[in-house]
Design a protein around this nucleic acid. Structure first.
Length: 1009
RNA sequence: GGGCGGUUAGCUCAGUUGGCUAGAGCGCCUGCUUUACACGCAGGAAGUCGCAGGUUCGAGUCCUGUACUGCCCA
């Protein structure tokens, strides 16, 4: 086919600008058809396996850019390893996210139907949540697919699916059996709206305007001549119903005589008599120095209560009313009880004063309502050390679960990058706080425990032996016969499997299942192996566990990462992954984290629609530096006039925003369908994604250019050393780039890796190599070699960029295979050809060592600086670009040969006609002058001697300043003695070069004077 | 209150074990329809490296203090 014809054809095939929307769907289809994402165990050895477990997104809503960065990075590492020949699994799935999901669905039901979960019942609520889950899971998986994530979609798992439940039950059962799970009464964070305990991690504090009431209690037997009352202050008068003591500091002289006596809580009839105790908690500096103690409703008081063996009176019902312990206030809402109590105290003349106070109140992250500390029975996992120790899955002993997880990181079995997050992990675990795993919710894994009240001890024995017999030996169960803190006998049975006959046996014997569900993290901690079939010994589990790297954001290092490690060690005996990489958080333009509630979240699909997936992935990769928290300012692009309007605190959550340009309103992602239909929806605009889009377009066009030229390229055996300098140079740069990119990615330096690739591709390949070889390409001398080198470079750069920008590279790869099916440098670099890029070989770790050549790189750099010098002189002196100029170069002995040999490079790139090179060249009159290391460049007849002379004088004084500084440094004895010899040597050489420069410049100036 | 970051060009960020004249992208200025790309090419201007001390022959880099800022934990 004639070249002209082919050029026409090619430009038909590849549009002038890259259009992601027309390319991406086809690439997704090609990957799917190739089954490249699918992972199956085979005969590859462990070092040729690669496993990434997705940090499972919650089915509470759709994904935002935070998820996009997370999954982009995971996809990059997975695609790279796949191309490096690893059997690679990227495990997808979603999390049922207990409280979060139930709260979202309950809120929606309430806003639409004005019904609570108690109105619709457990079964119906769970059904509704499943519906919600189906919808959001579909959206989330769709988003991930659209982002190009190469997950094995046949393996999608959900933390509440049937097989997953088996893993959860098995874990609960084993831990229960081993005594690692126990039931206890604890003060928990009670969400009175959701009526459940929430973990400390789900609580935040908010400042609320409140009051500080100063009360006093009458003393029962006041000391003679002493006070008759004892004053204290509280922000929560209603909790006085639960007061069991007053505390004073043991060092507080004022109250020494009162310790051991009693005070009277007057709200009861007869008044409740409470002791006055001495405890450090009372701060003599604050208020009266005396505090009331309500152990069942305040964490600090709880600690005091434990220390002094005080009773704990629970005065609250689950829905925040006063319980039966509240005497005449029973049944009142807390708010009403507060008013009544204040009034009653005032009537008794026991209220001294009231002041305004800002109070830090705990709130639930889930329901946004106030948290009540609440004493209630809960299930716990023992995290601390246990007297007999704990036996892990590999039969080794550890003092306790938390210690096992700490050890894994401390001894390097799990490496955390960046390393500073090791501290977060270890510090948290070292508290060894027991983990409250029960939640009073309906959405989640039911706790697999059945129990019955048993009256006295002999009756309990009777029930225990009967049920043991009834369950038989086929059922795996664990029975406990215990006394509760309140002195009741309870028989408890934990089942390893929720099989129907065992359940009906238990229930017909009067046992009832625990109404609570498990904390979401209890199930998600099993993710690295529950997804592979554990507890069954499946081939998947055998092959893909332990995994390779966990990539996540820093906020779940403790909640999730630490627990995966400890459960992996306990259940299996091996850590679940070798590496943990913590990536930056994406912040909005004002530096705030993106979240749904703030309204600053950005839907990746919006970005993709505007810029394409690769542009988004490029931008996110570029932002992934060691510095955490990267700003991502986002603007609205008006659907009417395309003007951009900045996202601000005011318009961030608005459904419609007025355009800065045309003043018309447009709809945002928060708008309903009708509003969108009426006003049109704004697209998301951001400079960051433009950079990515521009890069993809550049790649597209460079490829277009290459394809037009490399048709019919040969795959000859070449002698590198005899190739033109630019060929040797670009090949050397390529090999170095390959090596460095591997280093970067091995160390999770994502931003550095993409910057390096950008530099090689854009600057070296496009701006220098392609520009330099245009004449050779279109049939000049040594055309075949140029084509072969270009084809090879395109081949390699597409492979290198594929993990980050998979779509455009795959599309171009297909085209490259058509145009130049055979590429490579036989004997020097022989990459294997492959139909699809996704499964093609990644360039080797060591680069292509036969191509590396430091001397050529140095020579070429000299040529580059001469070229830049001529260009600068042309521009500075307004020489028309099309007119060629005459150039004289004065060169040192070392450089003259290379320059004479390669001067044509400068001629081609800077439009130089005549080129003179000599060691003793002098400055021609009226020439523009640039002084470089070891050489001086003169562009003839473009400058004025007077002007140029002044400029050179300035440059001279600049050089002299530098020389003075260097001489000073080298004259410094300390420097010469202490600095590394190579550093001193380098400084000497530098000074020599500067002196040479001065001499050269001097000679030019002499001619001008 | 404790812990961990950040503060470098107008903006967003790099800057390896301390060692040449501190870099990039965007923006800005100048020129350019040049054999793919104006989402482009060539050139240029622009930084007291938050502040104050200290260690060192030498500090953007290490140490101490301090200011501002963000996150996590209590």
């Amino acid at each position: 086919m004639p070249a002209m014809e082919l050029n026409r054809l090619m430009s038909d095939v590849l549009e002038k600008a890259y259009d992601p929307q027309s390319v991406e769907p086809d690439m997704l289809a090609a990957w799917e058809a190739s089954k490249a994402f699918q992972a199956q165990p085979d005969d590859r050895t462990p070092d040729k396996r690669f496993v990434v477990m997705i940090p499972l997104p919650n089915v509470t809503g759709t994904l935002h850019l935070g998820h996009a960065i997370n999954n982009t990075l995971q996809d990059i590492v997975t695609r790279r390893r796949r191309m490096m020949g690893c059997n690679s699994l990227y495990q997808p799935g979603t999390d049922h996210a207990g409280i979060a999901t139930q709260a979202v669905v309950e809120r929606r039901i309430f806003s639409e139907e004005k019904k609570t979960r108690h109105d619709i019942g457990r079964q119906e609520l769970v059904r509704r949540i499943w519906e919600w889950k189906d919808q959001y899971e579909k959206t989330i998986l769709g988003q991930l697919k659209r982002m190009g994530c190469s997950c094995d979609w046949d393996r999608v798992r959900f933390t509440l699916d049937d097989r997953y439940s088996d893993s959860v039950h098995e874990t609960f059962f084993r831990w229960f059996q081993a005594g690692l799970i126990y039931r206890g009464e604890r003060l928990v964070n009670w969400d009175t709206e959701l009526r459940t305990a929430v973990s400390d991690d789900e609580v935040y504090h908010e400042t609320v305007k409140g009051h500080f009431w100063h009360f006093k209690y009458r003393l029962k037997d006041p000391p003679a001549g002493g006070p008759t009352h004892l004053g204290f202050a509280t922000t929560r008068p209603e909790t006085m119903l639960g007061d069991v003591a007053l505390a004073v500091n043991p060092t507080d002289e004022r109250y020494k005589a009162l310790v051991g006596r009693s005070a009277l809580v007057p709200l009861f009839d007869p008044p409740r008599e409470i002791p006055i105790v001495a405890d450090e908690w009372a701060d003599p500096e604050k208020g009266t120095g005396c505090v009331k103690i309500t152990p069942a409703h305040d964490p600090n008081d709880y600690a005091v209560g434990i220390r002094h063996g005080l009773p704990m009176i629970n005065i609250m019902t689950p829905d925040r009313c006063v319980s039966e312990s509240g005497g005449k206030y029973s049944g009142m809402k807390f708010a009403d009880a507060r008013k009544a109590i204040v009034a009653d105290m005032e009537a008794l003349e026991l209220l001294d004063s009231v002041e305004d106070l800002d109070v830090q109140l705990p709130h639930s992250d889930r329901s946004k309502s106030a948290i009540e500390p609440y004493l209630s029975p809960q299930w716990f996992v023992r995290m601390g050390d246990i007297p007999d120790g704990v036996t892990l899955g590999d039969k080794t002993k550890t003092p306790g679960l938390a210690q096992a997880a700490m050890d894994a990181v401390n001894d390097g079995r799990v490496r955390i990058t960046p390393e500073r997050y090791k501290k977060t992990y270890v510090d948290w675990l070292s508290e060894k706080r027991d983990w409250c795993i029960s939640r009073q919710l309906w959405w989640g894994h039911r706790i697999p425990v059945w129990s019955t009240a048993a009256g006295d001890a002999p009756a309990a024995e009777q029930i225990a032996s009967e049920i043991t017999a009834a369950l038989g030996t086929d059922t795996r169960f664990e029975l406990r016969n215990e006394e509760t803190p309140k002195g009741e006998r309870v028989v408890t049975v934990c089942l390893a499997r929720e099989d129907e006959s065992a359940v009906s046996t238990l229930e017909s014997a009067g046992f009832a299942q625990d109404p609570d569900v498990l904390d979401t993290w209890f199930s998600s901690q099993l993710w690295p192996y529950a997804t592979l079939g554990w507890p069954e010994k499946t081939p998947d589990l055998d092959f893909y566990y332990p995994g390779s790297v966990l990539i996540t954001s820093r906020d779940i290092i403790t909640l999730w990462v630490a627990r995966m490690v400890l459960s992996g060690l306990y259940n299996i005996g091996k850590v679940p992954f070798r590496d943990v990489y913590i990536h930056p958080k994406i912040l909005d333009g004002r530096g705030e984290t993106m979240s749904k509630s703030k309204g600053n979240g950005v839907d990746p699909l919006d970005v993709i629609a505007m810029y394409g997936t690769d542009a988004m992935r490029y931008a996110l990769t570029d932002m992934t530096t060691e510095t955490q928290d990267v700003r991502m300012p986002v603007e609205y692009r008006c659907p009417h006039c395309a003007a951009v309007t900045k996202q601000t605190a005011q318009n961030m959550q608005a459904k419609t925003v007025p355009c800065k340009g045309c003043k018309k309103k447009f709809a945002t992602r928060w708008a309903d369908e009708a509003t969108v239909a009426e006003h049109g929806r704004a697209q998301i605009a951001s400079e960051k994604f433009e950079i990515g889009r521009n890069f993809c377009n550049k790649l597209w066009n460079a490829a277009r250019f290459a394809f037009m030229n490399i048709e019919g390229v040969r795959c000859d055996t070449l002698d590198v050393a005899s190739l033109p300098t630019e060929d040797q140079w670009i090949l050397a740069k390529l090999s170095e780039t390959i090596r460095r990119v591997h280093e970067d990615l091995d160390r999770y330096r994502f931003s550095a890796s993409i910057k390096r690739l950008r530099d090689f591709f854009w600057e070296a390949l496009c701006d220098w190599y392609i520009e330099l070889t245009k004449a050779r390409m279109s049939g000049g001398e040594r055309s075949a070699e140029a084509k072969q080198v270009l084809a090879f470079c395109m081949d390699q750069i597409l492979r290198l960029l594929h993990p980050c920008i998979p779509f455009v590279t795959e599309r171009l790869w297909g085209q490259l295979n058509t145009v130049a099916p055979q590429r490579g440098l036989p004997g020097l670099a022989d990459p294997a050809m492959n139909d699809l890029l996704i499964t093609a070989e990644f360039p080797p770790r060591a680069g292509w060592s036969a191509l590396e050549n430091e001397t050529i790189v140095a020579t070429f750099e000299t040529l580059q600086s001469v070229t830049r010098a001529v260009r600068e002189l042309r521009q500075r002196n307004n020489a028309p670009p099309k007119e060629s100029v005459t150039v004289t170069i004065r060169a040192s002995a070392e450089q003259i040969a290379a320059l004479r040999d390669q001067g044509s490079i400068v001629q081609r790139l800077a439009n130089v006609g005549e080129l003179h090179i000599a060691m003793d060249a002098t400055r021609p009159p009226n020439s523009g002058t640039v002084v470089l290391d070891g050489l001086q460049v003169f562009v003839h007849d473009i400058a004025d001697d007077a002007v140029e002379g002044k400029r050179l004088e300035t440059e001279m004084s600049e050089i002299e300043k530098q020389i003075a500084a260097k001489e000073n440094k080298l004259a410094n004895d300390g420097f010469v003695r202490n600095a590394k010899p190579e550093v001193v040597q380098a400084e000497r050489e530098r000074l020599a070069t500067l002196n040479e420069r001065r001499a050269t410049l001097q000679s030019s100036l002499a001619l001008l004077r």
